[in-house]
C-alpha cells in the first residue's frame, strides 16, 4: 500500500493506494500515529485509490479514531468506493466515522 501525506492548513490529507491488510496496516497505523503526535488533530483519509481493506485495516482505523477522540480530533473519510465501501456499510463504520464524497467536501466540514 502506498501512503501519501499532505499537511494542509485545516487538516492532514492522507491518500491511500492499494491494499490495506495485515501486512500494510501496521505501517499505516505508525504513520498516522506520527501525524497525530505532530499535532495534526484533523485527518482526512482519501480512500479513492484504496482497493481493499481487511479487518486488520479496519482495526487500524479504529485505533486512530480512538486516538483522535482522546485529543478531541476528527477523522474523516473520503472517496469510498467498491469493496471498501461495502465493508464500511456492512461493518457499521459509517455510523461512527463521517464519510464524504470527496476530499474537498470533507475539508469544508472541518
Amino acid at each position: 500500500m502506498e501512503i501519501e501525506k499532505k499537511r494542509e492548513q485545516e487538516a492532514a490529507v492522507v491518500s491511500l493506494k492499494g491494499r490495506m491488510d495485515a501486512v500494510s496496516s501496521p505501517e499505516f497505523e505508525k504513520e498516522m500515529a506520527a501525524l497525530i503526535a505532530e499535532g495534526n488533530n484533523a485527518l482526512i483519509l482519501d480512500f479513492a485509490a484504496l482497493d481493499y481493506i481487511s479487518s486488520s485495516g479496519l482495526r487500524s482505523i479504529l485505533t486512530i479514531t480512538k486516538k483522535l477522540k482522546e485529543k478531541d480530533g476528527k477523522l474523516l473519510i473520503a472517496g469510498l468506493k467498491g469493496m471498501v465501501k461495502e465493508v464500511f456499510e456492512i461493518s457499521g463504520f459509517r455510523s461512527i466515522i463521517p464519510i464524504f464524497e470527496s476530499v474537498e467536501s470533507a475539508r469544508s466540514q472541518i
Binding site: 456492512i90 461493518s91 457499521g92 463504520f93 455510523s95
Partner: peptide, 14 residues
Amino acid sequence: ELPKGFFLGVFEES
C-alpha cells in the same frame, strides 16, 4: 438483509 450494528468490543454505546 442485515440490521445495522458495529463490531463487538469497540464502543460500549454501540
